[in-house]
Simulated assay, not measured.
Amino acid sequence: MAKVFDSITEELQEFIGTQHLFFVGSAPLSSTGHVNLSPKGLGGFRVLSPHRVGYLDVTGSGNETSAHLQENGRITFMFCAFQEPPIILRLYGKGYTVIPTSPEWETLYPLFPAIPGARQIIVADIERVQTSCGFGVPLYEYQGQRKILVDWASKKGEKGLKEYRQQKNMVSIDGLATPLSQSF
């Protein structure tokens, strides 16, 4: 059953490294705001230290996580083993967004795969590390990453991506500004 750790252990880091999918959860402070839960892939998650993680975030239809982090910093990551042994790992923390114009970008960006459409890096200082059994998670066979998003971003090009972000990624669905709005 559930077990809490003081940090991300080497064993848990190895588990994270074998996962092709993770989930990111965040929420605004407003009780009428929308909780966001996003699936992520493309190999962009990194354990930066036993208490810090980050992932390369690519252009998408919204930018909820970034808006929520700017407002309150709360973030949860979840990894599920879809093969044996069954395990669910949750990382709870306080996060922030690093955009390409941030000084931290030059240090962090080389740690991630070069993916067309990369718009920001989400970094989180982890306060709680918890595993649970995962007995109820079904078994699935990994077939590969989808190429649709990468192909879409490549086709748009930098100018098209910038225009898209200006239209779709500056404000959350609850009206919260994102850090990207400061870079235009």
Rank of each mutant, 00 (worst) to 15 (best):
F45Q: 10
F45S: 09
F45P: 06
F45K: 03
R46F: 06
R46P: 10
R46S: 12
L48D: 10
L48E: 14
L48N: 13
L48M: 11
S49K: 07
S49T: 09
R52N: 08
R52S: 14
V53K: 00
G54T: 07
Y55F: 15
L56C: 12
L56T: 11
L56K: 06
D57V: 03
D57W: 02
G60Y: 05
G60A: 07
S61H: 10
S61W: 11
S61P: 01
S61E: 14
S61N: 14
G62Q: 12
N63E: 10
N63R: 08
N63M: 03
N63C: 02
E64I: 03
E64V: 05
E64K: 03
E64R: 02
T65F: 04
T65N: 07
T65L: 04
S66F: 06
A67I: 01
L69S: 09
L69T: 12
L69G: 10
L69M: 09
Q70W: 01
N72M: 15
N72A: 13
G73Q: 15
R74T: 09
I75L: 08
I75S: 05
I75R: 08
I75T: 06
I75K: 04
T76A: 11
T76I: 02
T76K: 02
F79G: 10
C80P: 00
C80A: 06
C80E: 07
E84T: 12
E84Q: 12
P85I: 08
P86I: 09
P86K: 14
P86S: 09
I87W: 03
I87M: 15
I88K: 14
I88P: 01
I88D: 04
I88T: 15
L89K: 11
R90E: 12
R90G: 11
L91E: 11
Y92V: 02
K94V: 08
G95A: 02
G95Q: 04
G95E: 03
G95R: 03
G95W: 00
G95I: 03
Y96P: 00
T97Y: 00
T97M: 04
T97H: 00
T97I: 02
V98H: 01
I99E: 14
I99Y: 13
P100Y: 03
T101V: 05
S102P: 04
P103S: 12
P103Y: 06
P103L: 10
P103A: 12
E104R: 08
W105T: 10
W105L: 06
W105R: 05
W105E: 05
W105K: 05
E106T: 13
